[in-house]
Simulated assay, not measured.
Amino acid sequence: MEPVTSGAVAPARNAFREQQWREAHERYLVCARAVFERLGYHDATVADIVEAANGSRATFYAHFRDKADIAACLFERTLPAGAAIYRRVTEFPEPSRELVRGWLNEHVLGFWVHYRVEVEAVNHAMGADPSVAARHYQWIVGAARQLEPFFVAWTGADEQVGLTRASLLVLQLERLCYHWLVRGVEHDRERMLDILADLWFRELVLLRAGPPR
């Protein structure tokens, strides 16, 4: 699940300057998260982030294109954790509906709650910047690739079909969790877990079986 990186690229520096660059980059990300959590994405400004970081606009723009870009970079920090979650489901010796339900309950839903600030910010950023939306779709595909052990039978002309099916499964879960756990649309947790477990278990079985012949 490789991040699609920001347009800002660190120029070649000696080791000390490179460390300074990385520390400044991280400071802006940490402060951006705090500002987005306090003010919300729409009300937050680059000036708010710069002030929180005790930095300058020139330094900000040396690292990020704009507010949407820093929101995207902030979300990219969650990608390793997201990848680990999807890999976990491939480690079941033999998937069952009960194991899938437990995975959803213990790992997936917790991820969305823990990273709600990052998720909220990047969803707003997608609406403001088409390039962030494009990056987001690549993140979805990257997550789907973690499920590759389930679609190894999809080869040749069917390989893209298998990946697309897995991507749609991830995208459906991502959209539901955003509206439910981040935006606060009410759902009965146990009922929703039952529905998601049915959908995921059925689709994982179909993916593993390979394309219909």
Results as ranks from 00 to 15, higher is better:
17 R>P: 04
19 Q>V: 08
21 W>D: 06
21 W>Q: 02
22 R>H: 11
22 R>F: 08
25 H>N: 15
25 H>D: 13
25 H>T: 13
27 R>W: 07
33 R>S: 03
33 R>A: 04
34 A>M: 12
34 A>V: 07
44 A>V: 08
45 T>P: 09
47 A>Q: 12
49 I>N: 00
49 I>A: 00
49 I>D: 00
49 I>Y: 00
49 I>V: 09
53 A>Q: 10
54 N>A: 13
55 G>H: 01
59 T>N: 09
61 Y>T: 11
61 Y>K: 10
62 A>F: 07
63 H>R: 12
63 H>P: 07
64 F>W: 02
65 R>P: 02
71 A>H: 00
71 A>G: 04
72 A>T: 05
73 C>K: 13
73 C>W: 12
75 F>C: 01
77 R>E: 14
78 T>G: 10
85 I>E: 06
86 Y>M: 03
86 Y>G: 00
87 R>I: 09
89 V>P: 00
89 V>W: 04
90 T>V: 05
90 T>A: 12
90 T>I: 06
90 T>M: 09
90 T>G: 08
91 E>C: 03
91 E>I: 02
92 F>Q: 02
94 E>K: 10
94 E>L: 14
94 E>H: 11
96 S>A: 13
96 S>P: 10
97 R>S: 07
97 R>H: 04
98 E>T: 15
98 E>W: 07
100 V>R: 01
103 W>I: 04
104 L>K: 03
105 N>S: 15
105 N>V: 08
105 N>Y: 10
